Amino acid sequence: MSEACSNFHFPVPEILENALVKLVPFIIAEHAETFFSGLEDSLFAYLPWGPYATTEDYVNGLIETRVRPDPGMLLFAVFDKASGALAGTIGLLDTSPVNLSTEVAWIITLPAFQRTYVTSNATGLLLHWVLDAPAQGGLGLRRVNWKATTANKASVGVAERMGFRMEGVARWDRVLPEWKTVENGGNGITLREGDRRPNCIGIDVVSLGLCWDEWEDGGRDLVDKVMSRR
């Protein structure tokens, strides 16, 4: 069992894979250094956390303090099977066994593997696991969420290609750290005088959803078609 996901609500498979990529539980000792060595600060532009100065900062600032203690969170390492290289991460957050829901999260595809089949196939494998019925090897959840800042059009585009439906925009939903700039995803609206966090921009967040009935009514086939593209 992975150090990063030993507290997850559901049993975690040792591997999720197809012909192109494989997902394995992120293990700090095996994956952190390699993954961190491929990171660029720009990959954190739209995220409310990061970038990190060292591997230790990444592990302590994200995995040990956020992912590992929370049973609703899970992190996978993504490998490109053609090269054998670690290509990124993907995972889940806000997983609820009561409401049978979760959110796709922690998606960081390293630069060498962007605009390839990696992100779509990693996402597709994760969707199969969470939305397929238990008899098919899945968790049988009813709903999967996807959230992204309105400025992150690439993330929203991936979600829509995978069958997620746009459900709304939460305005001023999050406040980013001081080192994030407006160009990196803020809504660009001037803050009022006397704001409590005047050096921190706010972002509007797009919410998308994919539900079990849509999955059964053509959603699974759509995802499989996207995953088959090279």
Rank of each mutant, 00 (worst) to 15 (best):
T123R: 07
F35K: 03
S228G: 09
E56M: 10
K81P: 05
V67Q: 00
D221T: 12
G50F: 00
T89R: 02
R174E: 15
N199I: 09
T190C: 15
R196Y: 09
E3N: 14
E14G: 13
F10E: 05
A105N: 11
L62P: 02
V223Q: 00
T89L: 11
V175D: 10
K225N: 11
E56Q: 15
A112S: 14
A53K: 15
E33A: 15
S155H: 06
V156W: 07
F26I: 06
P51R: 00
M166F: 15
P48A: 10
G72A: 06
T55D: 05
M227W: 00
R66S: 11
D94M: 14
F113I: 07
E30L: 07
P51M: 04
F164S: 01
V98D: 15
L131M: 06
A154E: 08
Y46M: 07
G140D: 03
A45Y: 12
G91K: 08
T109G: 08
G186P: 08
L125A: 05
E214D: 14
L110E: 03
G157F: 08
T150F: 04
V223F: 01
F10Q: 03
I15R: 13
G185Y: 03
L20R: 13
W146R: 06
A77P: 10
I27P: 10
I28R: 02
T54D: 12
D213C: 10
V223L: 05
P111V: 03
V144C: 08
G61N: 05
A135H: 09
A85T: 09
G185R: 04
V206A: 10
R66M: 11
V118C: 09
W215G: 01
E64T: 11
E17H: 06
G138D: 03
A45Q: 14
G157D: 12
T119A: 14
W106Q: 04
G209R: 06
C200P: 12
E14T: 13
T54K: 09
K81F: 02
L100N: 10
V182P: 11
T150A: 13
R220I: 08
K81E: 07
F164N: 01
S101I: 07
N121Y: 00
V24E: 15
W106N: 00
Y117S: 08
G202Y: 08
H128E: 09
V104G: 03
G163C: 05
T102A: 09
S2Y: 02
R229L: 15
V67S: 01
T65W: 04
C200Y: 03
I63T: 05
L191R: 14
R142Y: 05
P97Y: 03
P111E: 07
W215T: 01
A87Q: 02
V12R: 06
L39V: 13
K22Y: 00
Q136C: 13
